[in-house]
Amino acid sequence: MHSAGNDVVAFRLTDPERSAQPRFYNQILSPSEIALFHSGALPSLSFHIFLWLCWSIKESAYKFRKRYHPDLVFSPTAIPVTEIRATAQQITHEGPQNASTDPQITGTDHQITHPVLQITGTDHQITHPVLLITNAAHQITHPVHVITGRTEDLFFRSELFPEGIHTVVYRHPDFKSVRSGYAFLQQALGSNHPQTNGATEPTPETQSAAVRELVLLDLRKRDPNGAWSFGKHKEGYPLLYRNGVLQPVPLSLAHHDQLLGFSYLLPVS
């Protein structure tokens, strides 16, 4: 099934003290995931970051499946993250915290060149961007009872950076058909916009417009002659039109605070 799913989490709007409360994290993590954290698979991740990493994976997976199971209800503990492994690399650039840099986009014509793993331990001590590279080891498994009556494996790719997390989910471990990116509001709307310079909090309408602009920036780069526009399916997911014609391109949009994210499946060429 063609689908797309992504999510962003802005650390600024998360609360490490609340994350540490069992009544909070038990709404998100299953016992097996808590055990996974304590197994030491990601020794440099704090519990707070781990919790929100898992949240972003689960939210992305939910969006991915919701497209073909419209009645699906988001239940974080029913989407177990079964394995997480980070690949450590040397930092190669400063990532998205510098708002003047280009949006971070990955896809067939962009190699992943970011960063990675320099996590220093405690909450909010991440000083460099982090990339958890996708491969077959990054597997999430949906429980059998949700909708289809059978297990479905999905795969994720998450990037962690000082301000937050961007996760993309796909049905194969090879993400070469998936175009995705993340950026700050400012990169999509410009630094003069009042909601990108901290003067006012961004409204959902502004965030929604900004993430669409981010996608348009990418589409225009790939297809300068196309007149791209957006619609909305009655089930809530975004639709993509080229020259007024609905495209068979699953698209997922996400925003949280100043962060924007997207993923879409590249058309078969």
Binding site: L13, R18, F24, N26, Q27, W55
Partner: peptide, 22 residues
């Protein structure tokens, strides 16, 4: 934002002095 849904559950538990399971 969906990321606040768990906050709402926790706040509701406190507001009504109840426990809401997942």
């Amino acid at each position: 934002n969906s990321a606040n849904l768990v906050d709402i559950v926790i706040d509701a538990e406190a507001q009504y002095n109840i426990e809401i399971d997942a």
